[in-house]
Amino acid sequence: MNLNLDQISISYGKTKILSDITTGSLQKGNVIALLGSNGAGKSTLVKALAGLVPYQGKASLGDLEFAQMTQEQRLALIGYVPQTLPQASSLLAYEVVKSAANSLLKSQSVSAMEEAIEEVFQKLKISHLALLPMHKLSGGQKQMVSLAQAIVRQPELYLLDEPTSALDLNWQIQVLETVRNEVKKNQSTAVLVCHDINLALRYCDHILLLNQGQLLSSGLPKECLTPDTLAKAYQVSARVETCSLGRPMILVDHAL
């Protein structure tokens, strides 16, 4: 299902966070990076799509408007991974993922749900954590469990708010590859809030660059991330270079 944002504005009281975000139709099967400096409105936009923050304007997934979605539709279509990590409770990691997968029971049998849980633990290579209580997991491990909660439901739209913030380099690559594979395999869509522009450049198909609550640039990574847009969005002097493997890389020289 294609994602379409049309004149989205969000305010907290009298403070305007986002104004007139219009993206056009974002094709399914793509990983979309939502970039911008701190306070640009990235997490707010993702929360609005997850149904946690009210917005003005039109936002739709396929033919369905987000504002018109029932809780059941939202549950079936959207997999949201919040910025906050799951709590350090006595729940087992397996139970945390199972509680998210319970929504599958309306359309699947118990054994199919159990297979889906097994598969997601294997896919994310965290099977060894499954029967450990959450309070024993590190921040990065909790983040993996949170991601498993979304992937197990095979949603049409992933909303991932900094899903790699607590992960080391190895896990960052593994998570982004897993998300990309899922999106390509199921022809779903992922919106990924991210601070690492090089990871976005490598794993995302489309960039939405926000600056002070407005959409500064939207398009292919190479077109969007230029020294000019980076200077405006992040106040840094940056270059786009090509590494020895032929991949584009952004090097930041200094803050402006």
């Binding site: 946690l52 959207i78 949201y80 919040p82 799951p86 998210a100």
Partner: peptide, 18 residues
């Protein structure tokens, strides 16, 4: 019980599950 278990794993997580 299901909703409470979800809430125990995190408020935002629970909200996002409806």
């Amino acid at each position: 019980a299901w909703a409470m278990t979800l809430l125990r794993s995190g408020e935002e997580q629970a909200k996002s599950m409806g």
